[in-house]
Amino acid sequence: MTEVGQELPDWTLDEVDAERMKVLALLLADPNPLHFDPAVAPRLGIAERPVAQGPATMAMLANLVRAAFPQGRLTRLHVRLRGSVVAGQSVRAGGRVVERGPHGPGAEKVRCELSLEAGGRTVLQGEAEVVLPV
């Protein structure tokens, strides 16, 4: 049973993978070399390694929610980007249920607050809504 205040199980990743960023750059048709050329972020003084795309970090919060509610349907995800995640970093996504209520016959909607931490900082904040069968 999902209850308001309930913490979602953390979603963690030991190491953000630069190779996956390259694939995502192709999928997004994103020409920004910050995400695939290891020389660019250091040259610009931004980071020592390639920087993950915003959608990549957004996906980590989606993964947290999907793992917490495997029978649910994600209907909304909103994120605010507060910092960067770079290749090689470990990340931890966490969240908690802040609201739940009926959503038509045989279903309820759960709203969760979410955050993603990397390098000791909160780099992403957001919230999600999931529709669950009851």
Binding site: R20, P55, A59, A62, N63, R66
Partner: peptide, 16 residues
């Protein structure tokens, strides 16, 4: 897309 976004590939697309 699933693989790049740290998700096990399946028929339904990753939301992102």
């Amino acid at each position: 897309g699933h693989d790049a976004l740290y998700s096990t590939p399946e028929q339904a697309p990753h939301p992102v």
